[in-house]
Each structure stands twice: as C-alpha cells, then as structure tokens.
Design a protein around this nucleic acid. Structure first.
Lengths: 340, 340
DNA sequence: GATTTCCATTAGATCGGTCTACCAAAGGTC
DNA sequence: GACCTTTGGTAGACCGATCTAATGGAAATC
C-alpha cells in the first residue's frame, strides 16, 4: 500500500502541490471553492499529513523532550502529566525518557532527543548532572534546555519550588510543636532540591532550640519508600530517637511510616513525621501526613510556558521561576507532645 | 549559527557525502583510515545527526507512540517505565500521551502520533474506545497498534494480565476465609479488564456460598482513590455491610481504606479488603493489602517485544498474550473472622 | 486603450540525509 | 596483453513537505 502524498492529492483535485499545501495550512489566499475540492480529495484518498517532511523544510519539529528520573514517584508523575498537557495544547508532542536518576542514561536520552530534532528539552536532572556532562550535546545543537525541580547550572532556565521557603515553613511548624530534635531522612544527596531544603530547615530552626541534623542518613538513600525505611533504620540503630523525622519527600515518608511500625513505633504519636511535596497519598495515609505542598501542576505549567517562550525568543537571558509552597498540617505532627 | 550537515563534514574530510553517510552507519566498505578522517571532521565541526532527514528517506521514524490513561496510578507508571526502557534498548524513542481516560483526547493523540510517523503505537485504551473511533486514523496510516492492559478489538494485538484467573484466585481466597458476602468497588465500568475481573470473581465464587455483587457501585466510579471512597460510601449508605470489599485496583483500595476509617471501620478487622495489581504501596499500607499481582513490568516488556515483532513483520495474525497473575495474601484479609 | 493592481495559482529549489547505479584503479588469472 | 574481480568511492535521484519568485488573466485606474 503506497502512502498518499500531497502530490497525489493535488493531482486528484486538479491543482498544484503548492496549492494543496496552502489549503492544508488554511491560507486565506485560496478561495473556499478550491479549498473544498482539495479537502475532498484528501478524505477520499485517505491522506495523512507527514509532519516530518514539513518539519524538515521548516527546521522545527513541534516536539519537546522531557526527561525525568522516575514517575513511580507520584510527584513526578503529576509533573509529567501537566507538562504533557501544556505541550499538547500548544500543539507540541512530547518525547519522554526516564533517566532513573542515572547520568549515563540521561546523556543517551539527551543525545537521542537532539538527534530527533526536538525544539526544546525539559530536564529534571539526574543527581550528579554537571554542566560539562550535559553541555557537549546541548552546545553542539543549541537546543534550549530548561531545568525542572532541580538545577545544576545558572546558565539554563529553571522552574521549581521555593525549597528554602518550604524548609523554613516546615522548620517553624516543627519547632512550634515543642520538638527538641529533628532529623532529615532520604533524598538524592547532591541534588539542589535537597541542599535547598536543608538550608531552609536550618535557617528555620535557628534560634528555636531544636537540634537539627541532616547528615545522619544522607549517603546512599534514595527518593522512594525504600530510602525512607533504610534511613529510619540507620538513625534508630545509632541509638538516636528524634522527636521529629522530616522526610525528603512524601515517597520517602511512606517508607518511614512502614519502618517505624516494624519497630512498634507509631508515627504521629511516638515520633512525629513531616515531609515535602504533599502528594495525594499524604492525606490518605494513617495518620494523615503533614507535608509542604510544592504544587507540581503549577511548576509543570510554568516550565512548559517558559520553554515555549524561549523557543520563540532564544535570546532571552536565563530565567528562574520559583513556586511558593504551602504547609499542610495534618495528624502526623499535630498530635505531637513531649515524651513523658 | 548554521547547522552542520553531512555535506559540510564530507567537504572538510575531502570525501563525498555518500562516503560520509556510509561512515556514519559503520559500513565495512569504507577503510578505517578514511572513516577516521571523516569522524574527526564530525567532532571538529560539531556535527549532529539529523534523524528526521534519514527517517524521511527510509520511511521509518524509530519512534513508538504510547498512550496511557493516567500515570498517577503507580500501576500505569510502572508499565510506562518498562515500555520506555524496552523501546530505548531497541533503539526507539517514545512519544507519549496521557488520555486521562478521555476518548476524544485519545483520538487527537493518535492522530498526532500518526502524523509524527511513529512506527507503532502502544495503546492503553480509554474506556469507551471502539474500533470505529480509533479505526479511521489507524486504517488511513496502517500503523500497527497494540492494546495494553485493556482491549476493545480482537483484530489488534493485545498484551495484558489474565484477569479472569486473577479474579478466580481472589475469589477462592476470599471464600476460603469464610466470608459470606463480597462486593466489587471501583474501576472503569465498561473496560475489558473490569469485565474480565468480574467474570473471574463470579466463576471463582460459584458454589462457595459467598454472595457476590459487582453492580453496587459500578456506575461513575473511577480507577483511583476518590473512586474507592465514593464506592464505599455508596455501598454502606445503602445499608449493605459486606464481609469483604474487593477493590478494582490498589489505587481504589487506598480510597476504600480512607473512607472506611472515616466511618470508624478498621480495614482487615471490621471489613476485609482485597484488590488487584499489587503495586509497591500495597505492602506498605496498614494493614498490608492483599492483592493479586499483575506484573506490569512483564506486561510492558512483552508488549514492547510484540509490537517490535509486528513492525518487522506486519503480516502476522493478531496476537494475544496473557500474563499469569499471583495472589499476595496479606493482613487486610488474613485477619478476617466472622463478626460475632 | 494602455497601464497598473490584484487575485489565484504554480514551477522549481530546498531541507539533510539514504540509496541505486556506476566508475576508476589495482590486483589476479589465463 | 586481454579479461575478470575486488576495492574504494562518487553522482544524482529521492523522500514529502514548504517557500520564493513568477505567471496569466481579470478587474481597476488613468
């Protein structure tokens, strides 16, 4: 079965290929009578527009690339879906890759996307991304790259939560409960997001009397439930029993709940737990989890907008956009009281 | 900044464009000395391969399309990630769309993907998909489409769990507990997966004495936590108090837990809860959730394999591949005993 | 009536690769 | 020396759109 091209259509409609092309794009130069005739020929022959051919000539592709680490974390899933939605409404298709937080894999995916002529890339950088690792590919092609949720370079656009504010909000809440000590558990050790959250927590705790330690479980923990369990185990096995455990993310907090219970400790009663992200699950857990909402939908939407702007005008200076977080207080901390 | 083409490279290396092209594809006809010279010119000029141009000539695109309903359901997230992985290792890039279980949106995404010249499409059909809604686009382009996890047509390939077996396993387990009544809650009403699960449950319950009702909450419930809460509310508000609630999926079960507790009923003690999918969360819930694992990784992997086979040989007859499920018994049903 | 403007339409180059068909020179065979 | 084969390489058509510059004819202007 031969594919139907614009040539076939134009021949059937008795016009030139150029005319058919103009009809396709709804040019006002073609009178309705002719246009109708061409459109009829299209449906009759079962014509399918070949975007690749068009894009080749126009040297754009109407596709965006999106690389995220892992969508089994609902936070990233929500982010991804919003970005897809924004891209689609702007007429773009989305090429996705999951780096699984592996720089090597991420490089390959960047390379592929560039070869596929994407018009822009949204990158949620794998931990350990550095400019020179990513740069070569980006430089060679001059594709605009926007960093989402984490960043490693000041020279590229960035959209993410205001992690410092988020940390501060959480710290103030925890100290207002009267806790004496808190630890941070989980999260990708060298990511900007983690560093900023720690910074926020530290400044938020200053002068409050709460002893805060972010170093207890940092190494080798990951941004999922397993990382949470492992982190709790490591802390408690050191004989440390903080008043409040702060999880790097809700995904981590879920593992923290599980590990606490394995040790017959009830979250929210024996140890408070609080977290970042506020995924839908947070509210449905028992006890409901106190979490700082970082609004992935907003971030995704803004990221897509900003990238599309840059595609239109590549000369813009690098931009940073921070989304304001909001603390959601729930039973996992609200019921806290000093041990007797 | 002008883009560097094969022409530029060949000129710099003092060979013809044809030779450069052959080097690119590692042809054995070109001796290593020449190849090296060409490769040097490539890196020196910062050449980036233009896949679109190549694909245009070869009339393939090395991209696959994937349309799923919603990846905030971890089951679909896992499925999606496996498919991406399989596609990437086979050298394909993935174009994704999230239908949000909306047929209209799904049609648009199919259309776009076909225009983008994808070599094949993996479709997790939105509920209400019918052949004629999808067919037009598919027919016109003759792109191979494979159905994942749900199906609506016997003429297209299908890979999914053996839902009937899954239902039977669950039914037998529930009846072995001595339950007298069970209801099914949640799930997309007209999907093949739900119909099959009900069929499996019904045959599994036959002769066991367990009264099973799947009609109580069917209408208008969805495949997520909200659907679960709503479903439980509707059932209990009718004055029905089953011994066991069977959730369409783990995502639904999470909402069921929440709604039961809102009514001061403890899942696994006052009412047993069991479910399908066995996402990672199932084990971490309190009480851990009995669920039939349907192995999204296996399904995703097989789906990608099968689609790639069909792309290689489009003349194959439509294939069906069912993945065997496995029941994971946990505390949400294990602790069940008759009310006194 | 001559010239200009406008309208509808088109021929042909172009995007950046791949592929077919062909060629020139070197080496081998009788 | 004539003929065949192998090696290394190339010219130019081609994929299916878009876009520029041009054209023929009708209407409008002087």
């Amino acid at each position: 079965m031969k594919t139907v091209t614009l040539n076939d259509v134009s021949r059937a409609a008795g016009v030139s290929r150029s005319t058919a092309s103009l009809v396709l794009r709804g040019s006002p130069k073609i009178p309705e009578t002719t246009a109708e005739r061409v459109r009829l020929a299209m449906t009759e022959l079962g014509y399918v527009y070949n975007r690749h051919a068009a894009n080749m000539r126009r040297s754009e592709s109407m596709t965006l690339g999106l690389i995220v680490t892992d969508i089994r974390n609902p936070y990233f899933a929500g982010l991804t879906m919003t970005i897809e939605e924004a891209a689609h409404t702007a007429g773009y298709t989305l090429l996705v890759g999951y780096s699984r937080d592996d720089v090597e894999r991420q490089s390959l995916q960047l390379e592929t996307m560039v070869q596929q002529q994407v018009d822009g890339i949204l990158l949620l950088p794998a931990t350990g991304s550095e400019l020179n690792a990513v740069c070569g590919i980006i430089d060679r092609s001059s594709v605009p790259v926007l960093q989402v949720a984490r960043y490693f370079s000041e020279e590229l656009d960035y959209v993410g939560p205001d992690n410092i504010a988020a940390g501060q909000q959480l710290a103030r809440h925890v100290s207002s409960l009267g806790a004496a000590s808190a630890v941070l558990i989980g999260g990708p050790e060298r990511s900007s997001a983690r560093t900023e959250r720690i910074e926020g927590l530290e400044t938020g705790f200053t002068g409050s009397g709460v002893v805060f330690d972010s170093s207890l479980s940092a190494a080798a923990t990951t941004n999922n439930a397993a990382g949470g369990s492992e982190g709790v185990a490591r802390v408690l096995d050191q004989g440390i029993w903080p008043d409040c455990i702060i999880a790097y993310s809700d995904a981590v907090a879920i593992g923290i709940y599980a590990e606490l219970r394995r040790r017959n400790l009830e979250p929210g009663r024996d140890i408070s737990v609080a977290s970042f992200d506020d995924i839908a699950m947070a509210e449905l857990l028992l006890p409901p989890l106190t979490s700082v909402s970082t609004y992935p939908e907003l971030i995704g939407h803004q990221a897509a907008e900003l990238l599309l702007n840059r595609i239109r005008d590549p000369s813009l200076r690098p931009q940073r956009s921070l989304v304001e977080p909001a603390l959601k207080i729930r039973a996992s901390t609200a019921q806290w009281r000093p041990r007797t």
